[in-house]
Design a protein around this nucleic acid. Structure first.
Lengths: 347, 347
DNA sequence: ATGAAAGCGCTAACAA
DNA sequence: TTGTTAGCGCTTTCAT
């Protein structure tokens, strides 16, 4: 008479109603058995689980998300997926998310602000939180977004927004001391985009170090943070030789290597090159790049970890960003300053 | 008296009920205005849209997904994100998905079958379709999954499952003819994992070509498709020199270059090296790799395109996989066979 | 063209 | 501990 409590799921898969009927309990009990075990009798739970597996029941995340507002998905927003810098970050983020039972949405901005906004708008309503791994958004735009959704910024410090960053000051100190130890007395910094937060940090750190140590320091650029940018840097260096350069990133350093080779300047004999990031490719070029490695995978992982903690209700880290240590990877692009080299005194 | 039709959305954002109230229409009309414009009076629709924007209304994708079963999300499953081979594929897939209004979920298997299954299980219920970009799953497991969700396989032909693949036969022909044109009379193929579909294709193509042309052909391996695998290949080649090798992929070729350099064999003077894929890094090594480039971005893009067509109800491509063309990128690792080289007659 | 009403599958008070 | 009863926000017949 009273028809079936509920029909089967439209696509055929069983619902809590199916399980409930077979188990002889109320649907809500089945729900509890899965969403908050412990709030249901051990034996009942056991029986429900058994029947559920027999029936091939799987909780529908969409249906769960509607009443709870929680989707168990997070978004990772990246301005340019093809930049090798992000590979390890993605991997770290993804692994940590997966381990916590979260699914990761990828929002690639394809280097376009317009697309970035669209991608984010599309993602925001279906995720519990967002990791902004690189973005062209302004600090205020980021703060706006942070109001709508739990958010963690990577590699950038934004006031009032939790962030995880690499300790660039420490990295620069390693690079600086390394070069100083090799006898270099003047360092040229090939800077990246002015807008890049890391660029400012690195330059500031170098300034302090050079003052402290009484070493010469010069800044060239800004250049695009690409191979092409590095080639341009080599061009400029021609006018103002140096015995040691620190490049904003590996991509630029690779371009620099090419540019220098083209004009017959030898690395590291004539000039030492140190760069940053240690991306895939840094050890592939000849000579291999001495570079300040950031813990990229850890970076992605830490960001997600923080995000999930916040999502779970943790208090946002009030002040300082989380700082991740660097290490110097010494390869062949840096060497002892030679008296006759490019940046030799009186050259 | 009769209380408000509905409260505001729990998180504060307005719902169709809010818009409906202000516009003086039924919620269902608001719904139609967004989900099937045309089924509602032009002016009414206009008014609704205006009010919606004023109120800041955005349709909630989760709520929409529940009754429709469509989420506007697709999943991209990859066995190892950190493999540079996938960068461009991801980019192509993501861009195409975004352009179609779809959001992309990333399921990285982290090279583990276990994790792959978990990631897929987690993703399946919340997506409209899946692109399997590389997977350790068996053909039958893939077919199983294809029963549950619309699915397109990348770079692998699975019976009864739509797929997009690179034309390896064509690529091998390019490589083969290139080497033959340079005077090489015997070619050694450094093979990748036996399980890799592409490896079989390439080897088969080479066999046919060599028979046809009456050239010598040898196969070494299998090796892991990594730099380390390539180094091992160099080791083995030592016992059986050759003047020309075709490597399963760029990573292996890079290892091969290293291995050969270590034992004093010059490339391309002593031996020519041609590889496959043209990943980021192929042009970074010295000498730059001559390699068969697959249209990686197009591959990702085409897969998503096909997937979305299927999701929209298109008939699955009955038989053959979609075939994408290759091109040979000639760099410095291949050169004319020298009479005194490593694989010279009588060596 | 629009409204009324019944779900989609699950969770969450509130009772019992 | 378990059942009852409303929803979550949207779509979708079925009427009008």
């Amino acid at each position: 008479m009273a028809g079936q409590p509920r029909p089967r799921r439209s696509d055929g898969s069983p619902t809590i109603y199916d399980v409930a009927r077979v188990a002889g309990v109320a649907p809500s009990t089945v729900s509890r058995a899965f969403s908050r075990p412990g709030r249901v009798n051990g034996e009942t739970a056991e029986r429900i689980r058994t029947i559920a597996t027999e029936l091939g029941y799987r909780t529908n995340p969409l249906a769960r998300a509607l009443p709870t507002g929680r989707t168990s998905m997070i978004a990772l927003a990246i301005s340019d997926i093809t930049n090798p810098y992000y590979f390890e970050i993605i991997r770290g983020a993804q692994a940590t998310a997966a381990a916590a039972g979260y699914t990761m949405l990828l929002a690639d901005a394809q280097e376009s602000q317009q697309l970035e906004r669209e991608a984010l708008e599309r993602a925001v309503p279906s995720v519990d939180g967002i990791v902004l791994a690189s973005t062209r958004m302004s600090d205020s735009a980021i703060r706006m977004t942070a109001k709508q959704r739990t958010l963690v910024v990577l590699n950038r410090a934004v006031a009032d927004v939790p962030s995880v960053v690499i300790d660039h000051a420490q990295g620069m100190r390693y690079a600086f001391e390394h070069l100083r130890g090799l006898g270099h007395e003047q360092i040229t910094y090939l800077s990246g985009p002015e807008a890049a937060w890391a660029d400012g940090m690195r330059w500031r750190a170098l300034r302090e170090l050079s003052t402290e140590a009484g070493l010469g320091l010069r800044r060239l650029g800004p250049y695009p943070p690409t191979v092409v940018g590095g080639v341009a840097g080599a061009e400029d260096l021609r006018q103002q030789p140096t015995s040691a350069v620190i490049a904003y990133n590996d991509l630029m350093a690779i371009g620099l290597l090419r540019g220098l080779a083209a004009i017959g300047v030898r690395v590291p004999d004539d000039v030492s090159v140190v760069s940053c990031d240690n991306i895939f490719g840094a050890e592939l070029v000849t000579p291999g790049l001495t570079t300040v490695a950031g813990p990229l995978r850890t970076l992605g992982s830490a960001a997600v970890q923080n995000l999930l903690a916040l999502v779970a209700g943790a208090e946002p880290t009030t002040g300082e960003p989380v700082l991740l240590p660097t290490r110097l990877v010494v390869r062949e692009s840096s060497g002892r300053r030679s008296a006759t080299g490019w940046g030799a005194r009186g050259n």
